[in-house]
Amino acid sequence: MGFKLLSKLLVYLTASIMAIASPLAFSVDSSGEYPTVSEIPVGEVRLYQIADGVWSHIATQSFDGAVYPSNGLIVRDGDELLLIDTAWGAKNTAALLAEIEKQIGLPVTRAVSTHFHDDRVGGVDVLRAAGVATYASPSTRRLAEVEGNEIPTHSLEGLSSSGDAVRFGPVELFYPGAAHSTDNLIVYVPSASVLYGGCAIYELSRTSAGNVADADLAEWPTSIERIQQHYPEAQFVIPGHGLPGGLDLLKHTTNVVKAHTNRSVVE
């Protein structure tokens, strides 16, 4: 069995187990497998329904001669939608809004960016022009300005110390501490036991640490421990890039980060 097929099978099995364990909360999309990078042309966006009122959005972007996937989250909030992270750029984010209108038909009224990198804030200006209120932590807003990236308009308070959590509509926002970046936030959907790890969490097929220019490698494993301790009931975990899975993604990420750190020390 090929690795790609095995990865998709694991996603399907995880979703099936969740649907059985929580039949009222989960209505997993039966329309197909989780979209992969090879299936999404740059400039297009796919939506994948995880649970009743919960979707991931998947886009792709060219970077350094390669094409990478990027995940975000959409959560229903009454007759409105909360968006977590842009679709990595203005063109993708405009396509995301169009796809949401086509498939869901509810307005996106608020959006949260989970850290300051372009795959999370690139497209904020498109959201703002569409009347979406954009939010991020003060740290993310400051770092985005320093980096020359787009800056969300509103500040999220109460997320300055490791372990801080605040309720934001249908989700809980959690600051686990520094990891992929010093400002990275985690998003949890309690009604569906869905954990969105953003770039602080890796997919299972990833074996290298990737972009760690703004990471705190020493603190990252401790931050992941905080996530595990705060959300032990999480059933569906979405990484910032690639295929979702279960809580095993947290341990896998820790292993990859520690291996990278150990290699760096040896070198």
Rank of each mutant, 00 (worst) to 15 (best):
L243Q: 14
L106A: 09
E233W: 07
S205W: 07
V42T: 09
L81S: 11
V121C: 15
V146T: 08
L217M: 06
A209V: 06
A218W: 08
L97V: 02
S160C: 06
Q235N: 02
S191Q: 11
Y202N: 02
L6R: 05
G148P: 13
T140I: 11
T182P: 05
L47N: 02
V212S: 13
V124K: 13
I74A: 12
Y34V: 10
V146A: 09
A218I: 03
T93I: 03
Y68Q: 13
E101R: 05
L127N: 00
A98I: 00
C199V: 00
C199S: 00
K258D: 10
D64Y: 13
T86N: 03
T93W: 00
Y231N: 14
V171S: 12
N149D: 12
D64T: 11
V237Y: 07
V54E: 02
A19S: 10
S264C: 11
I58K: 04
M18I: 03
L6V: 09
F236D: 15
L173W: 01
L247D: 03
Y175L: 11
S205M: 13
A234L: 13
D79F: 12
D216T: 09
S70E: 12
R206M: 04
F236W: 08
T93F: 00
D214H: 07
P138K: 03
D248P: 05
E172K: 10
A25L: 09
M18T: 03
D164H: 13
L9C: 09
S193T: 06
N71K: 01
G163L: 06
T36L: 05
D29S: 05
S155T: 12
I151Y: 02
E150I: 15
S223A: 03
D118Y: 03
G148V: 05
A200W: 00
F236L: 15
L247E: 09
I238V: 04
I201L: 12
R76Q: 04
V171M: 15
E157K: 04
E150C: 14
A165G: 05
V42D: 11
F168L: 06
R128T: 11
D216M: 03
Q228R: 12
N149A: 10
L195T: 07
V75C: 12
Q229W: 11
A165R: 09
T253Y: 02
H260K: 03
N149Q: 13
G169P: 04
I74Q: 01
A144T: 10
Y48I: 10
I238M: 15
E172V: 09
G242E: 02
V266S: 15
G245R: 10
E225F: 15
L156C: 14
A178F: 07
P41Q: 04
H252Y: 03
A19F: 04
K102S: 12
F116C: 05
H180Y: 02
T109L: 13
Y175D: 03
V189Q: 06
A51P: 03
K8F: 00
R128K: 11
E267V: 13
G197F: 00
V112C: 13
E80Q: 07
T261E: 09
A94K: 06
N92G: 11
L73P: 01
R46M: 08
A21R: 08
S181D: 00
L217K: 05
V166P: 05
T109D: 12
T93L: 02
A133N: 04
L81F: 10
V108R: 01
D125R: 09
T60G: 10
T93R: 00
E172F: 02
H154T: 15
L10H: 11
L159D: 02
A15F: 03
